[in-house]
């Protein structure tokens, strides 16, 4: 069985982000990391193999040259190999274009089960797994809280936690499954595993390799246009009122001044 995990190299969420002239995030100015939410999908794939599933685990990423670091991080957690789709034309792509490239890549490398995180921690769209399943014509199960694969039956079983109920969903393989951060704490790779991860094979593909035309992707092909970006002003420290007998009046004045009374 071939399990492919979609991973994304995202800007460090705790770092200060800045934007380039074309209104995309300035990736060169900020450290990147494997999206924290994708680590859950990686963890589940590795656990499937550890629990006895006879599978090859491949990580697939689409991103600039530095995105290979995301693949290396995933490979340090386990798995067999990585596929990196890198092409300057991809810069500025939206979710539709991303799903197009990933779908072509998946068809190129083959798959039985595709796993993904529930969202990326930068764009937070959550839609790529659904678009992908649609493009590939396979079942999709999104926001799974756990994962079980029955290789003999060719099915994947997932529990989805909703507000009112938990659904048990079964899909025939091949399928696309996105997993939440409630599936289990991702492992912290040992140094030994990090060194082993560095030696695992990573294949690099371009749009031409996948038969995707440059016009189909990038900012120009995007369905939405970012018109402007303004940095949010830093949060102001709250005003502390020490009660020397007048606090009630100060608070009342504060509320009145803002139209709460």
């Amino acid at each position: 069985m071939h399990v492919v995990v979609l991973v994304k190299h995202v800007p460090e969420p705790t770092a200060t982000w800045s934007f380039a002239d074309d209104l995309t995030l300035d990736r060169a100015a900020v450290e990147g990391r494997l999206s924290e939410l994708d680590e859950y999908a990686v963890e589940q794939a590795v656990r499937l193999v550890e629990s006895g599933l006879d599978a090859r685990v491949t990580y697939l990423t689409l991103g600039p040259a530095k995105a290979v670091e995301g693949l290396r991080k995933a490979l340090s957690m386990g798995g067999d190999d990585g596929v990196h789709v890198v092409d300057p034309a991809v810069h500025g792509s939206d979710a539709l274009a991303t799903s197009l490239v990933l779908a072509k890549a998946l068809q190129h490398i083959g798959f039985d089960l595709v796993l993904a995180g529930m969202a990326s921690t930068d764009a937070e769209m959550s839609v790529v797994p659904a678009m992908l399943a649609e493009r590939l014509g396979v079942p999709q199960v999104t926001f799974g809280g756990d994962l079980a694969v029955d290789a003999a039956a060719g099915t994947v079983t997932v529990h989805r936690d909703g507000d009112d109920a938990t659904e048990e969903v079964v899909a025939a393989l091949p399928a696309v499954v996105s997993l939440t951060d409630r599936t289990g704490q991702p492992r912290y790779p040992s140094f030994k595993a990090i060194m082993a991860g560095k030696k695992k094979p990573v294949q690099t593909l371009t749009l031409a390799d996948l038969g995707v035309a440059p016009e189909q992707v990038g900012a120009a092909a995007a369905g939405v246009v970012v018109r402007s970006v303004s940095v949010r002003p830093p949060k102001q420290a709250g005003q502390v009122v020490v009660d020397d007998g007048t606090a009630a009046a100060v608070v009342a004045d504060f509320l009145v001044a803002r139209g709460f009374a």
Binding site: E12, P13, T14, A15, T16, E31, R33, Y188
Partner: peptide, 17 residues
């Protein structure tokens, strides 16, 4: 703590900002 150190540079995970 280790992840916070790796990603944010401090044990609380707040970041340099």
């Amino acid at each position: 703590m280790l992840r916070n150190l790796e990603h944010a540079g401090d044990p609380w995970g707040r970041g340099g900002g």
